[in-house]
Design a protein around this nucleic acid. Structure first.
Length: 751
RNA sequence: GCCCGAGUGGCGGAAUUGGUAUACGCGUUCGACUUAAAAUCGAAUGGUGAAAACCAUAUGGGUUCAAGUCCCAUCUCGGGCACCA
């Protein structure tokens, strides 16, 4: 008997798959298609971690399952390569991000191949490849043409020491992540995508998606649609304040107004007595970090000096400025109804403002109906070097002009120093020659902002259909065949990325570029894998499990893959258990050894064989990968007891292949069989004898064995039960009634 | 604070529709093989009990012939949102 040597077997099959381009997909119009993808990874220097392996293996199990079922399957792969780690590394070491990215991709590719994934490697994409981001820029220009990419002044986090804009995630406890200095808010002109234009459709179509309810709810909350009204409160005959409220019917109780510190016309509300205090309050509020605002919900505010007329009561009510009102929502101004609203009451009590109990009035009496969303437009400007340049240039007056499509891509220029310059612009501003561009004979200066990385990942699923197309972002025919994506799997980005791809899909459908309005049919949202101690894996805690170590320790990729599918329900978090890895290895070893055992002379396993085919097939359909593996273990345990026929082993190898493809391929080769997915026949699922559960008052008291036909004969089963010596002692005084459930093979006697 | 989700052996977890609670794996114990160990194979394994039996799915009620599953309340943990008027 040969020993099970996973590393040897895996090397052999990976070589075969590589040399035969085994998973290369082509459009075959007469065959049903299946497209699957994981959320493409950011190729970090650390290589694959066990979380990637779980994510990719889920996709691989489904990919191979549908391959074996005879569908025309596409499972591509790519890399999301723009981002902070490569840029930080560049700032620190001077190494070009392009170089680091290249190295990391090579490592990721090698590791993904080492795991035996059924990837069509001819379709690899990389978002920082000019051939890719050329089309990201094209996408931007389409949005720009329709007014959905626009510039707006907005308040951004600003570090006065580093002289740069910071993203929310770069502000830690109100301080700059690089220098530790306190940050402030600064008004700056930034680019936005107008996602709010699609708010209604994004909300309405959520219910039609085969996505986890959790994600759907998060997206609904994120969009946050509120139905209310806008009401004008007059300050003088010609000046007014517009407020938004969801409760226009409570207007009789509105005893003051509040505007946000960032309210644009705040200065027009002050007088000589209040000006100084109001402006000081505004300045302090702008400095407050998110953390401070969250921690301290004590109401603060200042009277502006102005009054407005409540249109319902005609009362003259004061106007305050307070940071509990948010500038970005509604009109940035509210009518305060302290009798109805807890926050308004708290404010009123602190500032001794009247609290008037109110009768309700007709909702439409004083305002105009208005729908508002919690979701804001998507801020896409990044003052960073390592991102996709925004294809815009400015004329001498500072007006933006799109770079003509035939001048794309706008390449990222080479620079010596990757730090942002002292005007808060990205390092692109240091490429003086690159900045100059001529459009229609006019000299212009290029935009130095780059795009948020989420823009690059908003369309990559469509690029997979024709990844090398140099005429278009995607080929309409290929898209029509392959997409939308049938299965998309990931464990992150519930609202950001997964909302942005839906937004772009709807936009490009409206423009006639896509024949569908939702890009992802089914979403699988997998859980995290934690360290053996139950905590998050992290370098600093020293509890990281490296998947490549597990493989190279001798367990092999098949054990790693199968273990991660067996670890628990795919959508729940799980803790790594090194000893259980050994259990899965033992299981695969037992599968292997069966091939060398003496074949059983008779076929004793028809029932369990058919049962196992049915169970594994339906478990994969329901994404219950852990119980599918358990069923295979049960099957193998049975084969050890009864002896296996050749047929038993062929079925085992076929069912095992999605999980442990190398071992299964080797078994199938030695058994001289194909990997075609097996089918079961329900007629074989009926055993020779059926066990009837006999309960007395709902408690199990006896089991009786009958032939299947007796299931139709209730009276026979009842008399068998009543004469059973385990039952008679309970039924001496007769029974009140009996309930027979044929489907459950159960008889309950009530005494 | 609000909105979800979840609490099952020593541990990870199973239980398609209300119908044998604890599948499968880990761990533990015993046995076989071995000079010995590892590996492998086999057996046992929720608790109490000699047994019969009784008690067990976070806690307390309820519905039902029958509840891990349905209903009501409470507790704990996890996730999301967090002054959105």
């Amino acid at each position: 008997m040969e020993r099970y040597e996973p590393l040897k077997i895996e090397e052999k099959w990976q070589k075969i798959w590589e040399e035969t381009s085994a998973f290369k997909a082509e459009e075959l119009k007469n065959r049903p298609k299946m497209m699957l993808a994981e959320m493409f990874p950011y190729p970090s220097g650390a290589g694959l971690h066990v979380g990637h392996v779980r994510n990719f293996t889920i996709v691989d199990v489904l990919t191979r399952f549908y391959h074996q079922q005879g569908l025309n399957v596409l499972r591509p792969f790519g890399y999301d390569t723009f981002g902070l780690p490569a840029e930080n590394y560049a700032i620190k070491t001077g190494t070009a991000p392009q170089e680091v990215t290249k190295t990391n991709i090579a490592n990721f590719r090698k590791q993904a191949k080492r795991l035996g994934y059924a990837i069509d490697w001819s379709r690899e994409i990389n978002t920082s490849d000019p051939e890719y981001y050329r089309w990201t820029q094209w996408c931007f220009l389409q949005l720009y043409k329709k007014g959905l990419a626009y510039q707006k002044e907005s308040y951004q986090w600003w570090c006065p020491v580093d002289q740069t804009v910071l993203a929310n995630e770069q502000v830690e406890n109100g301080k700059c992540w690089r220098c530790g200095h306190e940050v402030e808010k600064k008004k700056m002109k930034q680019w936005f995508f107008k996602i709010t234009e699609y708010a209604d459709e994004l909300l309405d179509e959520i219910d039609s998606l085969e996505w986890p309810e959790k994600i759907k709810t998060m997206q609904k909350n994120w969009i946050g649609r509120s139905v209310g009204a806008e009401i004008d409160f007059m300050i003088t005959n010609s000046r007014k304040i517009k407020v938004f409220t969801t409760r226009p019917d409570t207007i009789l109780g509105a005893t003051f107004l509040v505007v946000a510190p960032e309210y644009p016309e705040l200065e027009s509300l002050v007088n000589d007595d209040t000006r100084e205090e109001v402006l000081a309050y505004k300045a302090a509020a702008l400095k407050k970090s998110e953390i401070e605002r969250q921690e301290n919900k004590e109401k603060t505010g200042v009277f502006t000096g102005s009054y407005a007329i409540n249109p319902a009561t005609k009362a003259k009510i004061p106007i305050y400025v307070a940071d509990y009102v948010l500038a970005g929502y509604g009109t940035g101004a509210i009518m305060a109804v302290p009798a109805m609203d807890d926050r308004d009451r708290e404010f009123a009590e602190k500032f001794n403002l009247p609290i008037v109990e109110t009768e309700l009035v007709d909702r439409d009496l004083y305002g105009t109906p208005k729908v508002t969303y919690r979701m804001r437009d998507w801020l896409i400007s990044r003052q960073r070097y390592w991102g996709c340049p925004i294809p815009i240039a400015y004329d001498k007056e500072g007006n933006p002009h799109p770079i003509p499509e035939d001048q794309l891509p706008v390449l990222i220029p080479e620079v010596d120093d990757y730090k942002p310059d002292n005007s808060g612009r990205s390092a692109l501003a240091k490429a003086k020659d690159w900045l100059k561009v001529t459009i229609n004979g006019e000299e212009m200066t290029r935009e130095t902002d780059t795009l948020d990385g989420y823009a690059c990942s908003s369309w990559y699923l469509w690029r997979y259909a024709s990844p090398h197309d140099n005429k278009a972002a995607w080929d309409p025919e290929a898209i029509k065949y392959w997409e939308p994506v049938d299965y998309y799997c990931g464990g992150d980005h519930a609202v950001a990325h997964l909302l942005y791809v839906r937004f772009w899909c709807k936009f490009f459908a409206d423009e006639g570029y896509l024949p569908f309005r939702e890009p992802i049919k089914r979403l699988l949202y997998n859980g995290y894998i934690n360290a053996p101690d139950g905590k998050k894996m992290s370098k600093s805690k020293g509890n990281v499990i490296d998947p490549l170590d597990v493989i190279n320790d001798g367990y092999g990729a098949d054990t790693l893959r199968t273990y991660e599918m067996f670890i628990g329900p795919y959508d729940q978090d799980a803790a790594w258990d090194t000893r259980s890895v050994g259990g899965v290895y033992r299981f695969l070893n037992r599968c292997w050894n069966l091939v060398f055992a003496k074949p059983s002379p008779e076929d004793k396993n028809i029932v369990i064989r058919n049962k196992t085919i049915k169970k594994v097939t339906s478990d994969i359909h329901r994404y219950n990968f852990n119980t599918a593996v358990a069923a295979l273990m049960e099957y193998v345990n049975e084969l050890y007891k009864t002896g296996a026929t050749n047929e038993d082993l062929v079925i085992l190898a076929k069912l095992l292949k999605p999980f442990a493809p190398h071992l299964a391929s080797e078994m199938l080769e030695r058994l001289n069989a194909t990997d075609e997915w097996p089918t079961w026949d329900d007629k074989y699922l009926i055993a020779d004898t059926v066990e009837i559960i006999v309960q007395v008052n709902g408690k199990l008291r006896a089991k009786i064995s009958v032939v299947p036909e007796d299931l139709e004969d209730e009276s026979k089963i009842l008399s068998l039960a009543l004469t059973n010596d385990k039952i008679t002692k309970y039924t001496e005084n007769g029974i009140k009634k009996s309930i027979f459930v044929k489907k459950a093979k159960l008889l309950n006697l009530v005494v």
